[in-house]
Simulated assay, not measured.
Amino acid sequence: MTLALAIHGGCGTLPKAEMTEAEWAQARADLAAALRAGWAILTKGGSAVDAVEAAVRAMEDSPHFNAGHGAAFNTDGEHELDASIMDGATLAAGAICGAKRIRNPVSAAKALMLRGDPLLLAGRAADDFAEHEGVDTVENEYFSTERRRKNLASMKIREIVGTAAEASEAEKHGTVGAVACDRQGHLAAATSTGGYTNKPVGRVGDSPIIGAGTYARDGRCAVSGTGKGEYFIRYCVGHEIASLIAYKGLSLEAATQAVMAELSEHEIGAGLVAVGADGTVVAPFNTDGMYRGWVTEDGLMHVATHGDVEMAGQA
Rank of each mutant, 00 (worst) to 15 (best):
R148F: 08
H173T: 11
E169M: 11
S168P: 05
A153L: 10
T163K: 06
K172P: 01
D136K: 11
V138M: 04
V138S: 03
R149L: 01
A153S: 13
S154H: 15
E169C: 14
S168D: 05
T137P: 02
H173Y: 15
V161H: 04
A164Q: 13
T163R: 11
G174T: 10
V161Y: 06
F143C: 06
A165Y: 12
R148N: 05
E141H: 03
S168Y: 01
A165C: 02
G174H: 09
A167R: 03
N151D: 12
S144M: 04
A153P: 00
V138C: 06
I160N: 01
R149K: 14
E141Y: 00
N140T: 08
S168E: 15
E169G: 09
T145E: 03
F143M: 09
T145S: 04
G162E: 01
I157A: 09
I160F: 08
E159S: 05
A153F: 00
A170F: 15
E169A: 13
R147N: 05
M155T: 09
E159I: 00
L152I: 04
V138W: 04
L152F: 13
E159N: 07
A165R: 11
E166C: 07
N140I: 02
N151Q: 15
K156A: 11
S144Y: 07
E141T: 10
T175R: 06
R158V: 00
I160S: 12
F143P: 06
K150R: 15
T145P: 03
M155K: 04
A153E: 14
S154L: 15
N151G: 10
V135L: 00
V176R: 02
S168R: 12
E139S: 15
E166L: 15
R147H: 13
T137C: 14
T137N: 05
A165I: 14
T163L: 11
I157R: 12
G174E: 03
V161G: 00
A170L: 07
T175S: 15
R148L: 05
K156R: 13
K150V: 14
E139N: 07
S154P: 00
A170G: 13
N140L: 02
A164W: 08
E139Q: 13
K150F: 08
M155G: 00
E146P: 00
T163I: 05
K150A: 15
S154K: 14
R148W: 07
A153H: 10
E166D: 15
L152E: 10
T175K: 01
H173L: 13
E139K: 10
T175A: 10
